[in-house]
Write a protein that binds this DNA or RNA. Structure first.
Lengths: 199, 199
DNA sequence: ATATACATACCAACCGGTCGGTATTGTATG
DNA sequence: CATACAATACCGACCGGTTGGTATGTATAT
């Protein structure tokens, strides 16, 4: 890699990093491009050299986040054996998501909110989201055919599980240190599995 | 109430109504005070006569929403008999929330996002939220002592149920016409109850 | 007469994005 | 190896437009 390319890439990541924390702290609208540049230690010229608009740097962050999530989920699937076990190990994933971001968790909400207004962002959200759902749906179907799960409707159950994950994440947002969400997730999944498991 | 008060109150509600739809459609930041006034059919003078800032009219809407939710929930509790039945009738409530707002659902997300930045809004959100949780917690405890529910941890289960409700709401936001969320909610609660019910 | 409820005109601040220019690195040529 | 040229990466002053909020005037009810 060139010296130039190297420098370029570094500024780019600095900008992304700066944008991420800024968006997380103050939201998309309240974060000026100038502020992002200041945090990144570059100028507007650099910014608009790398990104064509404020919207675009946001979308870039969004995509990266979704990609990370998806790869985590697929990794998960490969490591486990039975479906119920697989579901239980989900709690670890939720915990990871919660911890990974720490202070900048609100950016996820920002993603969501903006998706509601902007069709481009919405599409970027919906597609992976549906893939997650399908992934869960397949998991359920698998569990049914392997005889570890009751004969429930896979798609509905997938929605149920996703709802649980989303809801716990959001509650974790409100009450970050109030509770051991790892434990709550674990127990919740236990209860859920009691209703799902074939015995 | 005299003629002046009557007029005053009408403008106030018009402003609130206008703000609600505008915030829902375009978000807090993207909605100008001027636009709210235009929709309401009054001028800025009227606006700042009734509300000291844009933030304040937002908070007013927020409080009203939370109050509405809470009263709906307490109503629900009085009408039903056994706890499992009570939980099942929750699905109706979720459905109501989804329908009631229709186009302006995103405003709830707006509430949430702003709460993450603004301590005032956050407090206004957390307090009722904890009350909801306590309400559920009591429901569970009641169910346990009346012998219809297994001996689970009430608070954890309350979080689980709230998570489910929140998650389904959010998925409903993404996919408003994709599915019969009423049915999904119903079935999800069924599955959950299978894991909770004492038999 | 006086307070209330609103209208009008206006401002200072800010913000996303542009643009002409510069500095540094890479490359072709003699 | 030196020179000329080109491409890339970046700078920072600037602009048009918007916005929340204010100052002041006016009409109407009490």
């Amino acid at each position: 890699m060139n010296k130039q390319q190297q420098r370029s890439e570094e500024t780019r990541t600095r900008l992304l990093k700066a944008a991420e924390t800024s968006f997380a702290q103050h939201g998309f609208d309240a974060t000026g491009v100038a502020k992002i540049c200041q945090v990144a230690g570059v100028t507007k010229g650099a910014f608009y050299h790398h990104f064509s608009s404020k919207q675009e740097i946001f979308l870039e962050l969004f995509r990266r986040w979704l990609e990370g999530l998806e790869s985590q989920m697929t990794n998960l699937r490969e490591e486990t054996v039975s479906v119920p076990e697989e579901l239980l190990s989900m709690s670890g994933l939720i915990q990871e998501v919660l911890q990974a971001a720490e202070d900048q968790l609100p950016i996820y909400l920002e993603f969501w909110t903006r998706a509601m207004r902007d069709p481009t962002v919405m599409q970027a959200l919906i597609d992976p989201f549906h893939r997650y759902r399908d992934l869960f749906s397949e998991m359920i179907s698998e569990g049914i055919s392997e005889g570890t799960l009751k004969k429930v409707h896979p798609e509905t159950t997938a929605k149920l599980i996703l709802a649980l994950a989303l809801g716990l994440l959001i509650q974790g947002l409100i009450d970050p240190r109030g509770d051991d969400w790892q434990r709550v997730t674990q127990e919740s999944l236990q209860i859920l599995l009691t209703g799902l498991r074939e015995r």
